[in-house]
Design a protein around this nucleic acid. Structure first.
Lengths: 124, 124
DNA sequence: TTTGATATATCGAATCTCGATATATTGACA
DNA sequence: TGTCAATATATCGAGATTCGATATATCAAA
């Protein structure tokens, strides 16, 4: 079996049900970068604030994911900061990243459809 | 910090975002048992069929979860089978299990709301 | 000058899923 | 009658992921 890598064409609109949290973290980060570039710490703060605290990022989780997304070519990071002052790494979403995010979103919609189809039983 | 156990009163309507797949598997199983008792293998088949193949259970995942849910008092298993023939373990959802499932569902709805609040950006 | 927030990064422990392996029953088909 | 595939439960090791701690450093405010 060929190994599927992040953002490969094979991925299409499927999300990996066996690792939903990883998929969630990825799409939250990509969605946050859709309108403007941001550095890692800001991404985490924005997601936490916008979700009223429902989605939080530990730093030990955030940075490895950013490195992975960059390595996969879905985002691109650039160091900024005036000469020997504080350095921030600003991330931009790539064309590949936008496409990947749209496919993932389609996968999540399918997920929620089937999900509420089954767990709806609880409310009947 | 007090450790939270599955189904404890502390849990309330929160789902564990850092382990979404586990939460998903639990609520799928509990929802499937809401109307009638079933044995493990049947639970997996029913979920797979009803979700059009979106949700699948490996046996190596299914049985440990059933044992865990039973240990937590959310489901109750009873062996059945006529004397030395094939033994099936039928599971029933408990009152505690029903309550837990309803609280979890509330948590998933909150998740759903905040999720699309953020990833909706992708479609704009 | 000292504290807390900002900013990035890595590591070990704990946890979870996957796929393989094991064992046994049952029904269908040749 | 024999054999194969599906049914049924269970456990284990490998791999992946998140958490919380730890480390380092800048910046602003009191």
């Amino acid at each position: 079996m060929l190994k599927k890598n992040l953002g490969d064409d094979m991925d299409l609109s499927n999300i990996d049900i066996s690792n939903l949290t990883r998929n969630l973290n990825e799409i939250l980060i990509l969605a946050t970068l859709f309108l403007e570039k941001k550095h890692g710490y800001q991404i985490a703060l924005d997601i936490e604030e916008k979700s009223d605290g429902v989605f939080k990022f530990n730093h030990g989780t955030l940075y490895p994911i950013l490195h992975k997304l960059e390595k996969a070519g879905l985002i691109k990071g650039t160091w900024k900061g005036e000469e020997s002052t504080r350095q921030r790494k600003y991330y931009t979403i790539t064309t590949k990243g936008r496409k990947y995010a749209q496919e993932q979103l389609a996968g999540w919609k399918g997920f929620f459809k089937e999900f509420f189809d089954i767990v709806g039983e609880i409310e009947k």
